[in-house]
Design a protein around this nucleic acid. Sequence first.
RNA 1: GGGCGUGUGGCCUAGCGGAUAGGGCGAGAGGUUCCUAACCUCUCGAUCGCGGGUUCGAAUCCCGCCACGCCCGCCA
Length: 632
Amino acid sequence: MLGAIKRELFEGIRVAVGDAGYDRDVEPSTVELEDFDDEEKGEFSSAVSFAIAADAGANPMAVAEEIADRHREAGLPDGIASVSVENGHINYHLDVDQMALRTLSTIDAEGAAYGTRDRDDPDRIVADVSSPNIAKPLHVGHLRNTILSDALMNVLEARGHDVTRDNHLGDWGTQFGNLLHEYVEFGDETAFEDDPIAHLLELYQQFEQRDSMLEDVEEFDAVTDAFGEAVAEERAFHVDDGKEWFARLERGDEQAVERWERFREASIERFKRVYAELGVDFDLWLGESFYAREGWNDRVVEKALDEDVAMRGPDDSVFIPIYADEYGEAGDPSTAAVDASLDRARELLDEAGSVADADFDAFYIVKSDGSTVYGTRDLATIEYRVSELGADQSVYVVASEQNRYFQQLFVAARKMGYDDVHLEHIDYGMISLPEGSMSTRGGQIVTVREVLDAARERARDIVAEKGRDVAEEGIDTIARKIALATVKYGMVASNRGKDITFDIDEAVSLEGDTGPYVQYATTRAYSILDAAETVPDVEGVDPAAFNDTDHNLLHHLGRYPLVLGRCEERYDAAPLARYLLELAHVFNSFYHKNRVLDAEDAAAERLVLTDATAQVFENGLGLLGIDTLAEM
RNA sequence: GGGCGUGUGGCCUAGCGGAUAGGGCGAGAGGUUCCUAACCUCUCGAUCGCGGGUUCGAAUCCCGCCACGCCCGCCA
């Protein structure tokens, strides 16, 4: 509704600028939505006058007056009461009575759908989300990914898109060969049965630690040649056998596959428990192995060679050359410009003599031993999503350390002719610990389990201390929801791109700008609604009963759909999180300044307003995967 | 060395071309016979990393420098 008015204002300004005799393009962004409580700025403002005045060498104030006059003559949009000029800005003032009624009746009519939109031609979006590696525990990095992507996908769905969440498991690659090797050599059946992930993690770490230790010894000048040789031999034994196991896996060797499947199933089973606790769901669990085992890797390699975008190395390796000037907006089909031919690569190769020295990046899709790499799998994934799922967008929620890789992948995809699919890497900052960066290898991680447990414990203490009329058996349920709100809100609200130093005490805090703050505001609204017998009909609302505090709240409620639009544009749910916090501030303030139930002349009006506010909280928090609470 | 990203009050952080830079934590002062004080109101506190430039207008765009992080593997 505010969005519609904004568009009308933009059109009106454009016409008014022309009517005033100025020849100048006006951008839609010239119309800004302002806060309600600003008498000077009005609820919408525009600063077009300055640019026009600068062009014409005129006074901005006069230009603004002129445009405002023309606009007024042509007729202001429905819902706008007046236009004024202040400091050269053109300010539009809402017809607050009309807006109050429109906002309340829209929310009342649309209910849970308020803020969402339908599309005639929605995009089919397939997304890599969560994507943990099997045989390792979920850590805070996965937590950030999972929460971020869940919220974002919810928002994209609310904006009318057709979203498929694919938990793109890391379940293929050399590391699983290593793990098979280690398991065969040192595995313990009982320990595996007892806690599969813990045992597999132990084996993984053991392999890595031994390998890096042997590497260090190797680099050191050996005491004797024989000792040096023995070290090299020992290291090669493990590494080669690991590779061999992966090769067996790729060949479909029964023993390898059977063990790998056990690892995979046990891991997924554990993951699912955590996901259930988090309240997130996926549509697909394809994982990297799917593309290897179902022939998609082969298909994509063939295609790359057939279409002459990939070339063979001196051995049997296959790669797609990527030139330095091709990095850019490759994710966007409309701006992609790549040189798919191999002529340049051949020339550069002649000059340099070897692939490694040549002045291009080689994006490998087949290794010299014939096995695939992650790039192969990711191209195969695109092929699958486009041909089988009819994807219009393939998006990747993956940490920013892989930015460069995704640029390469997108360039490679363009070269292969995937021109109708929008590719989007949704990156997010790295998580490190106060003690330094996280490392699964070195055992320095914080698991999702630890975070959830700590959050719940903290929430439980607070509920027991401050919770009102909460029955003993209800404490756990409520504490769990509050704990999730804390963790989820914290993860979504912070700027996606920024690195986070994860301090568990801070992350689990329930004070200030947090999820529970928003929950609390909602609970207060519920409490009022609960005390009232019924919510009066919107039709009976007298807008004249509202004061400025009420109008401020109404204005915020009206903004909600615009916020979702912004989230969609930016592939980021953070604006929604911040909006809800603001709404909670405004509502809490409203709560203190106004009486609702026993208000002398606005009880019915404020009850309707409170009901509408609760609805927006529910809708918004719902998209973030945060539950509201009747009491806390 | 090259590429990408970040730098906003003591701390965390929003804003990313428009009118006095918005929150939170911390510090200080108030507020509850009344719909949940996990709250509200007020005060203190910012050369928006530094230096140039573009613009009527720059925290926001461009260039240089500094600091920090990440990447630069036939690992993922």
